[in-house]
Design a protein around this nucleic acid. Structure first.
Lengths: 132, 132
DNA sequence: GAATCAGCTTACGTTAACGTCAACTTCCGC
DNA sequence: GCGGAAGTTGACGTTAACGTAAGCTGATTC
């Protein structure tokens, strides 16, 4: 029940990416689709990884950083030494992301204030909000 | 008391960027240093903008997106029509950032779980944490 | 007054992350 | 058995965001 695979086209539809992107990610060793003859077949694992990749990108991480992070989700099948390194890398990423979250929360607060300012300013000038 | 200006070198030291970067941002109309002869002098306003620029970059925004956002902090000296547009742009950015924050919070949670998994796994294998 | 230093412009180079052909192969329906 | 759809591999093009090198100016310092 975990043998469901997906063609490249299905993946593109599901995640709104182009075939080129998926092949590129494979070349960069971010995805590992199975080959049946020539064709790629993406597994459920690939879907999970792709989801994480796109998420990571939204947070401003590079593909290379993401590639390393992804090993966390393969952590079972590694050698102990490598697990330790991967684990520590994960800790660092966690710290980065938490810092980013804090910064983001502050930035949101600042932006809110600016917007209230603008709102007030618009009211003073007697503008009817785009309520038409 | 608001007439403090800064040379390009001082800016670089303060924000850990290169001169090239600051000149590039000026060319892209993200910063507007005053000229004294040939030389650029950065105002307090430029410092505030640069801070926002670097922040935005960390969140994965492009310089062009950031440029538009920055108008929010100039919102006083615009025409009413433009203020409205700027204001709406700000609202959109706010929504984007809030979505990003939520996603980030979830991702942090996921990552934490994975790390606990790894931690457990390392203990089972009897590894002394890099406490040496 | 020669050197050093900070800064300037112009222009070409670079890296990441794909886009865009071009030129096949494979399968599927009719 | 043929046309179209889906997929494949190169190989080159593109955009953003700077880096880097060359050659110039002006101020300061010894």
């Amino acid at each position: 029940m975990s043998d469901a695979t997906f063609t490249i086209g299905e993946m593109c539809d599901a995640f709104d990416v182009t075939p080129r992107t998926l092949r590129f990610y494979e070349a960069k060793e971010l995805l590992f689709p199975v080959r049946v003859g020539q064709k790629r077949l993406f597994t459920k694992s690939d879907r999970a990884r792709l989801k994480l990749i796109l998420q990571g990108k939204r947070f401003g991480f590079s593909l290379e950083e993401i590639r390393q992070l992804l090993n966390l989700y393969h952590i079972g099948d590694q050698q102990t030494t490598q697990i330790t390194r991967t684990y520590e890398l994960g800790l660092q990423h966690l710290a980065t992301m938490e810092a980013q979250r804090d910064e983001l929360v502050n930035a949101i607060e600042d932006l809110r204030e600016q917007l209230q300012w603008g709102e007030k300013l618009l009211q003073e000038r007697g503008i009817k909000a785009a309520a038409e």
